[in-house]
Nucleic acid binder design. Structure first.
Lengths: 256, 256
DNA sequence: GTGAGCAAGTGATTTAGTCACTTTGTGACT
DNA sequence: AGTCACAAAGTGACTAAATCACTTGCTCAC
């Protein structure tokens, strides 16, 4: 078993080693392909193969004429398949089903974290479990820079902004996952959403649930803010269930 | 935006198109690099770059001297980062935290599916929510071939088998996710576990919780089998919590 | 200053060929 | 007839030296 640790696999590891030894983060430039070729005593096509592998997982990024740079997802433990199969109505429903299974628990955890951080303003009876504050994030998260409750609120109001508006990049569900305090969960939800960005836009065009989305997002936000885990969980479940029934009712341009 | 749809990105898409048009599945051979070079009127290094990208995500597999084959994860929507950062104790805890958040809900869903499939043997009061049977799987799942309850039981007894034993590939938590009926959830859990296979082995060597694992797995299995969602959820939570405290107490060879 | 234009650095791709490995089938030997 | 050794064909792995395309920054005229 494991007879072949070989290949240009070692090269990708070596390049990752260079990146980590130099403590490079997303956006930083890495040595050019020719430079690496010289350093490893290989030729550029070989180097490029290794770099392409790293590119496929978002570990590095090519910019023609400029250089090669560290990618945004180099520290991810899980990622969305960039070579995903063509979307079907069924696969979209499976995706929603998965989110319906995990996001309510995420919302509840976010509320618990919030309740532990703030000195409980109005004590609603929602302490259903022990595991409260998971504490600090290891700083190598998936882009959650500052404190998350503010970003979460920004993401709420964002549901009404047109594409291209301010801070359109913020997604409520991703920010909600970030508020749970666990960067892996944030990656998970982010990956799940990234798979269907194109379909998301399609759905948004088909009918206008943006106002309802906004209201439901706000309700969830309020529940999280007040530390009511049970309410956050239930509201999130209902919200996703609404989306699911909407998708079920929708007639897709492409359906198998 | 999106000014550059170009690159050898189109090549990877085209190759994926070939695979899907020919309806090739994992294990099937794809045209050789030279053949593809001729077909696309390109040169082999260019083709190889595209193939390397596909290799990085498990869409294709190289076998030196034999050929190139369709990989096992070509239909995944989410996957474990093959170029994952070095593991730290904190990152392992984050991983467990994420599983602690989602797996109890997965176990509960598996129990609900089971309760809906079998005509409730002993009606325990566990119907806390509506969403029951999600129905058929789209057949393009992540390896769950036959019916899952049997495989789940096989995975239970497997906790005691030494490495290299029969059906060692089966993992209880992955099979549990499969039993939830949602292939995306199965992928998710599988990816989460794949990230730390090396650490899993390390932990298993440090101290022997295999017997306790076995007993807890069996308890969860029984709860799922009897359709008791609440029990399955709670038992899974406790099981993962035990693992977490064990990891917290462990002294890792490498710790930052 | 401001802008046009040159030059260096970098990625993108080609071309032509060699080496290493796997598979398969043929043939000789038993 | 059965089995083993070996050769041939097909394939991936990699090299070598170029050329083209793009970006960036600098310089120099205006």
């Amino acid at each position: 078993m494991g007879v072949a640790p070989s290949l240009s696999d070692r090269l990708t590891e070596a390049i990752l080693g260079i990146i980590r030894d130099a403590d490079l983060g997303p956006g930083d430039a890495i040595p050019s392909a020719r430079e690496l070729a010289k350093r490893f005593e290989l030729t550029t096509p070989t180097i490029r193969e290794a770099l392409r592998k790293l590119e496929a997982t978002g570990a590095v990024e090519f910019r023609h004429g400029s250089g090669t740079y560290v990618g945004p997802t180099i520290n991810n433990v899980v990622l969305a398949n960039p070579h995903r199969p063509p979307i079907t109505k069924n696969s979209v429903l499976e995706l929603i089903g998965a989110r319906l299974l995990i996001e309510p628990a995420v919302a509840a955890q976010a509320a618990r974290v919030q309740a532990a951080a703030a000195p409980a303003p109005s004590g609603a009876g929602a302490a259903e479990e022990g595991a409260a504050a998971e504490g600090e994030a290891g700083s190598h998260g998936a882009g959650s820079g500052g404190w998350s409750l503010e970003k979460l609120e920004a993401a709420v109001t964002n549901a009404l902004t047109p594409p291209g508006g301010p801070a359109f990049a913020l997604n409520f569900h991703v920010e909600l996952a970030a508020a749970s305090g666990n960067p892996v969960v944030e990656e998970l939800i982010g990956s799940l959403l990234k798979v269907r960005v194109r379909e998301q836009q399609q759905i948004r065009q088909l009918y206008d649930n943006r106002k309802r989305d906004y209201e439901e997002h706000r309700a969830i936000f309020e529940a999280v803010k007040s530390g009511d885990a049970a309410a956050a969980e239930q509201l999130t479940r209902e919200h996703l269930d609404h989306i699911r029934t909407a998708i079920e009712a929708a007639a897709f341009p492409e359906l198998p």
